[in-house]
């Protein structure tokens, strides 16, 4: 019988007890639950990783607009600018932001992506993971390990908070994606389990309260640009955590705060497009245009 691990404290304890990395423990448990070998389980994760890379590749060479016509050509714009003049923060920053836009734009034009954890937040984990792996020459095995850790982080959060904008706002979608990325990146940088948990906590803490107020109810405004923003946010969290900077509030308590904030958040700001950006003057004009076109 596999003991179910549904909090970060339990995860930390069991990893310490078994002297395992987060990914090792998660991989073995998943394989056991699915009644498959750990190699077969790794292959499942690799399929997701490969699909993430394919989405980046397709997204980089398209500027096809979404059905609504509101978004789709920003990745192209960003690439042209970087070709002309590099990013202030260098190549890694360029890659993360470009890959994030490539992926999320591939999503809105009905291309193939990996929901991670959701479609609207699908670009955050891949952009950080793939860009860093390319720049630091990280092996595929290590990339898979990092993705397992990202999945394990999201899984534990999902026990307390449904990862849906309609339930807890964008903090539970892009916010959690950013926290997952921070943990995965911290692991790639050689972080200990404790440092990984701190990276997650630091990323999550600084996104509490993020609402879900999409214009026209579509996964476009502000979702598209939010993905590169929160990908970079993940890097900040990992950099701090790997320096042994700790979240003064333990991770499980941060997740409690996430849950409470989600409950207190007005339903008008939870994917219902009844307030916030969705009800600005310009958003209403876009809405008129969109519904006339449809």
């Amino acid at each position: 019988m596999i003991k179910s691990v549904n909090s970060f404290e339990q995860l930390q304890d069991i990893c310490e007890f078994k002297n395992k990395h987060i990914w090792e423990y998660a991989l073995e448990r998943e394989a056991e639950l699915a009644e498959i070998s750990t190699d077969a389980m790794r292959n499942l994760v690799k399929k997701s990783l490969d699909a993430m890379k394919d989405a980046i590749k397709s997204g980089l060479c398209s500027k096809e607009m979404s059905i609504s016509g509101m978004c789709g050509d920003d990745c192209d714009r960003l690439q042209r600018r970087y070709a002309n003049r590099g990013a202030l923060f260098g190549k890694l920053f360029e890659k993360i932001t470009t890959y994030a836009l490539a992926t999320i734009e591939e999503n809105l034009r009905m291309g193939k992506i990996v929901a991670c954890p959701t479609a609207g937040s699908c670009a955050i984990v891949p952009s950080v993971l793939v860009a860093v792996s390319e720049e630091l020459n990280i092996s595929e095995d290590e990339q898979i390990n990092a993705l397992i850790t990202a999945g394990e982080i999201g899984r534990i959060v999902s026990h307390k908070v449904a990862l849906a904008g309609a339930v807890a706002g964008c903090q539970a979608e892009c916010g959690v994606a950013s926290a997952m990325s921070a943990g995965a990146l911290c692991q790639i940088l050689g972080g200990t389990n404790e440092q990984i948990f701190n990276a997650v906590a630091l990323a999550m803490k600084n996104l509490l309260g993020l609402t879900c107020d999409p214009v026209c109810g579509l996964v476009e405004i502000p979702c598209v640009k939010r993905n590169p923003f929160l990908a970079i946010h993940a890097v900040t969290a990992a950099e701090l955590a790997i320096s042994d900077i700790k979240s003064k509030i333990p991770l499980d308590e941060v997740i409690d705060a996430l849950e409470q904030t989600g409950k207190l958040m007005s339903p008008t700001l939870k994917e219902s497009s009844q307030a916030g950006l969705a009800k600005t003057k310009t958003a209403l004009e876009l809405e008129n245009r969109f519904f006339n076109k449809m």
Binding site: V45, K47, S48, I113, G151
Partner: peptide, 12 residues
């Protein structure tokens, strides 16, 4: 974890 890092799907 596969609830979190999948499915592979067409968007959006």
């Amino acid at each position: 974890i596969m609830d979190i890092i999948s499915p592979i799907m067409v968007g959006p």
